[in-house]
Amino acid sequence: MLTKFLVDEAQLTDLVAPVGRLSSAEPLSGGMFATAYRLHFDDGRSAVAKIVGADTSRFLTYERGLLGTEALTYRMLEDSGVPVPRVLHTDFTRELLDADLVVAEHLPGVPWFGHELDEAQTAVVRHNLGAVMAGLHRVEAPSFGYPAADAGLSAGTWRDAFVLMIEAVLADAERWQVALPAERVRAAVAAHCGALDPVTRAAVVHTDLWEGNVFIDPETLDIVGIIDTERTLWGDPLHELVGADQFGTGEPNVDLLSGNTAAGGVLARELASPTGFTRLQLSRLYFSLVLTIEPTMRGYEGEWAVGYENGARSNLDLALVRLEATPTAS
């Protein structure tokens, strides 16, 4: 079972000393892999510390170097208008602790997840999230794939990076003895990877913009922060739609798309392009592979874990069926 890294008060005080004198700290719940604390300093500032132990044996290949990616992404987005916290301190030396550390500003607002909204209010937030995505995707990245060198999943084209990502997740499944239709997956990717070639500009793609990673102003419903950028990749903006709705199989949300278009985003246009449907299904294929492996690799237990894996397998099969029924571009 995946366990979080344990940190005592003295260790935490030493770790965050470059930011200031710690007056108190409280653990934050949520998240599967990181230990997180809300920090309060003597000068009145608040921040959030995220700590990930050096043991990555229960991580997928793409998750190697997660916290480095989180800090890098926050810094890349600092002047973009996307509401991300400012990085206050990082420590990847593992001199004080056998773990990595990122300390970032504490965001205002409340998490969208768990905040009760009616249908109309939810539509407003989704519209606003589409606008945030537009801001994200305007930031250009220097290559394609996952930025962390430890992952080894970057390339000069989106097609090459995506194939690396697929092969890595299939290798992870083999390592953890998770049965997958690997040959069907490889055949579908080989048949349709040409659809990825129109993606010639690498956008910053958060990949995990579910409600828990989005902070809103409860009065105005403006999005005042997005967090947990550790799984960010550089590539196709359409990948964002799947990351924000990882078990979804239907049409992307219309309010999100309208908000994206109104803010100058490209999602609706790219979806309507000749390769849009195929690219969306390839991204859904990738996410379904990841979600299918996670319960075994992480050591999830209980009926919910069975339902989680079954849902992922059902979506994996659906993505394959759709790709297999889609004519290959000439």
Score class of each variant (00 low, 15 high):
residue 32 M to S: 14
residue 36 A to L: 06
residue 39 L to P: 04
residue 39 L to I: 02
residue 40 H to A: 10
residue 41 F to E: 04
residue 44 G to K: 05
residue 44 G to F: 11
residue 46 S to P: 10
residue 46 S to M: 15
residue 49 A to T: 08
residue 49 A to I: 15
residue 50 K to V: 10
residue 50 K to H: 07
residue 51 I to Y: 06
residue 51 I to H: 05
residue 53 G to K: 05
residue 54 A to M: 12
residue 55 D to N: 14
residue 56 T to I: 09
residue 56 T to F: 12
residue 59 F to A: 14
residue 60 L to M: 14
residue 60 L to Q: 15
residue 61 T to N: 10
residue 63 E to L: 10
residue 63 E to N: 02
residue 64 R to E: 03
residue 65 G to Q: 04
residue 65 G to C: 00
residue 65 G to L: 00
residue 66 L to R: 08
residue 66 L to I: 07
residue 71 A to K: 00
residue 73 T to E: 00
residue 73 T to H: 00
residue 74 Y to T: 00
residue 75 R to W: 00
residue 76 M to Q: 07
residue 76 M to H: 02
residue 78 E to N: 01
residue 78 E to D: 05
residue 78 E to T: 04
residue 78 E to R: 04
residue 80 S to P: 08
residue 80 S to C: 03
residue 82 V to A: 06
residue 82 V to K: 04
residue 86 R to Q: 10
residue 87 V to Y: 00
residue 87 V to F: 00
residue 89 H to T: 04
residue 89 H to P: 12
residue 90 T to A: 01
residue 93 T to E: 11
residue 94 R to W: 09
residue 94 R to I: 02
residue 94 R to M: 09
residue 95 E to R: 12
residue 96 L to A: 15
residue 96 L to V: 11
residue 97 L to F: 04
residue 98 D to N: 14
residue 99 A to H: 07
residue 100 D to M: 01
residue 100 D to K: 00
residue 102 V to R: 05
residue 103 V to N: 08
residue 104 A to E: 13
residue 104 A to H: 08
residue 107 L to D: 12
residue 107 L to H: 13
residue 108 P to R: 07
residue 108 P to E: 07
residue 108 P to S: 14
residue 109 G to Y: 08
residue 111 P to L: 12
residue 113 F to H: 14
residue 115 H to P: 06
residue 116 E to F: 07
residue 116 E to N: 08
residue 117 L to R: 07
residue 119 E to K: 12
residue 119 E to D: 12
residue 119 E to V: 14
residue 120 A to M: 13
residue 125 V to P: 06
residue 127 H to K: 10
residue 128 N to G: 15
residue 132 V to P: 11
residue 134 A to S: 10
residue 135 G to H: 08
residue 135 G to L: 07
residue 136 L to S: 07
residue 138 R to E: 13
residue 138 R to A: 15
residue 140 E to V: 15
residue 141 A to F: 08
residue 141 A to M: 10
residue 146 Y to C: 05
residue 147 P to A: 06
residue 149 A to S: 13
residue 151 A to N: 04
residue 152 G to Y: 02
residue 154 S to G: 04
residue 157 T to C: 05
residue 158 W to R: 12
residue 160 D to S: 14
residue 161 A to E: 06
residue 163 V to G: 05
residue 165 M to G: 12
residue 165 M to K: 13
residue 167 E to Q: 14
residue 169 V to E: 12
